[in-house]
Amino acid sequence: MRYLRFIFMALAASSTLLAGGATFAKLGVPVVQHPQGISLKQESLRRSHSGMFRTARGHYGGGIRSHK
């Protein structure tokens, strides 16, 4: 523990400082995909003809499906 304590305390201190810095810098938070925006027709969204969405979706399964 003579030397290990310095490593442990340095790790705890640096992780805290990095966590604080990364939080305030919003590191890892993506910027919106289209900051300028892409024009949409509201009608097309409502009628589901935009091509952006599929009309039916599948699920990869889990829980009961994986026999838990």
Partner: peptide, 8 residues
Amino acid sequence: GQELLVHS
């Protein structure tokens, strides 16, 4: 009055 998609 336009609707602009910024993120999906």
